[in-house]
């Protein structure tokens, strides 16, 4: 089930160079949104930008839905100028999110903006009635430089073990986040681990390879250009073992072994 609804902006503030934290109030969507799902947002009443912009749910607090986005083009640029009190037309929650397996130790792998849906997942994975039943969640964050490391504290607040990889070595491990993942898997003994990843395509492809070699299940959140976001236009498909699948409908989260990489 998804809703189309108009909802008020509670907050839309700049949190870094080009990054924004958007909070919208919609009890309807908030009450059923799951980690990995997204909301398709109509940014303006004008004819440009015309299409909605899909943003993954970053966090849900009561009736407030949090988004974390980077200004990358005209759509997100227009969104960044919206202020509290303005209304946006939302469609959501959309797509199939992550399946949080609470029996397994979780390794979350985020590249750049890939952190956005993983905070919500980390929250779901770490919530439990007793301290004892709480599972261990490791989060690996990759970025080009120290300045672009996102959401480190949010994960730490949830009690996750956070490790950093930067291309230039300005913070943490010097190299790719997938190299860090490989090193971690070599040096640490994980009993029944599960990988959850979101980030650039090349990173996801590498995670996929690691998951195969180490026989660890991995769920990947994919990103493709979308026109409708509801499964009608077939614009965002990916090639899978089971034929073409829609990122907006069957995805955005897929099992790594499903995807046929080009």
């Amino acid at each position: 089930m998804a809703y189309q609804t108009k909802a008020k902006i509670i907050k839309n503030s700049k949190v870094g160079e080009n990054y924004f934290h958007l909070i919208i109030s919609s009890g309807k969507i908030a009450s059923i949104a799951l980690p990995g799902q997204f909301v398709n947002i109509k940014i303006s009443e004008r004819l440009f930008p015309l299409l909605r912009r899909p943003l993954s749910v970053h966090m849900v607090k009561g009736s407030a839905i949090h988004f974390f986005y980077e200004v990358v083009g005209k759509g997100t640029e227009a969104l960044s100028r919206k202020i509290a009190g303005e209304e946006l037309d939302l469609i959501g929650p959309l797509g199939n999110g992550f399946t949080a397996d609470k029996k397994k130790k979780a390794i979350l792998v985020a590249g750049g903006m890939g952190v956005a849906p993983l905070t919500f997942l980390a929250e779901k994975l770490t919530e439990s009635k007793t301290q004892k039943s709480k599972i261990k969640v490791s989060v690996l964050i990759g970025a080009r430089t120290k300045k672009q490391i996102l959401c480190e504290n949010e994960f730490k607040k949830l009690g996750c073990d956070v490790k950093i990889a930067t291309d230039d070595g300005s913070s943490g491990f010097k190299g790719k986040v997938t190299d860090l993942l490989n090193r971690l898997l070599r040096t640490t003994h994980y009993e029944l681990p599960a990988i959850y990843a979101c980030g650039p395509k090349l990173m996801l492809k590498a995670v996929s390879e690691i998951s195969k070699v180490n026989r660890i299940p991995a769920q990947l959140s994919l990103e493709e250009h979308m026109a409708c976001g509801i499964g009608a236009c077939l614009g965002c498909v990916v090639n899978t073992q089971d034929g073409m699948k829609r990122v907006c409908k069957e995805g955005p989260v897929f099992e790594a072994e499903e995807i046929i990489w080009r």
């Binding site: 440009f48 015309l50 759509g75 250009h225 026109a227 077939l234 614009g235 990916v238 073409m244």
Partner: peptide, 21 residues
């Protein structure tokens, strides 16, 4: 059955969009 074209299949243009599904 037909698989369709490789991606990217859509992009936005001023007041419109391009598709090649």
């Amino acid at each position: 059955p037909r698989k369709g074209n490789p991606g990217p299949r859509t992009c936005e243009t001023p007041a419109g969009m391009l598709n090649s599904i």
